[in-house]
């Protein structure tokens, strides 16, 4: 287990939360959402690491009890999560383009028609 990866992922997630909470420009908020996603992806893929293990690709003849490999399940989870992160980015940026055309500003202080 790699300590540096875990610390880095938590720092990324905390930074992402800070950007979403405090930055006013809409595209910066979208970037903050992406940073949170990348931090979580780093965390997931680091949970599957086994020190000194090989890649989990085997023929049936070479596979026996006691073969030591890296966990493949978190790799599949990370792949799915990367796809979802890309889709969130695409959708959020499309909404920002539409908002800019309607409100002529990308400042979250001005985009407050629904309140109270």
């Amino acid at each position: 287990m790699i300590i540096v990866n875990y610390i880095a992922s938590v720092v990324l997630i905390a930074l992402g939360f800070y950007v979403i909470v405090s930055k006013k420009h809409l595209i910066k908020i979208v970037i903050g959402m992406s940073i949170v996603d990348y931090g979580i992806n780093l965390f997931i893929v680091s949970t599957g690491f086994n020190e000194g293990g090989t890649a989990p690709i085997y023929k049936m003849s070479e596979f026996f009890r006691g073969s030591y490999f890296v966990d493949p399940v978190p790799q599949a989870l990370t792949l799915t999560s990367i796809v979802i992160g890309a889709c969130v980015d695409a959708m959020a940026l499309s909404l920002v383009i539409k908002l800019y055309k309607q409100y002529h500003t990308a400042d979250s202080d001005e985009i407050r028609r629904l309140r109270g």
């Binding site: 959020a92 909404l95 920002v96």
Partner: peptide, 12 residues
């Protein structure tokens, strides 16, 4: 569109 954007940020 504003409601959709806020929904996306909080939901995400």
């Amino acid at each position: 569109v504003e409601a959709g954007f806020k929904y996306l940020v909080i939901g995400s």
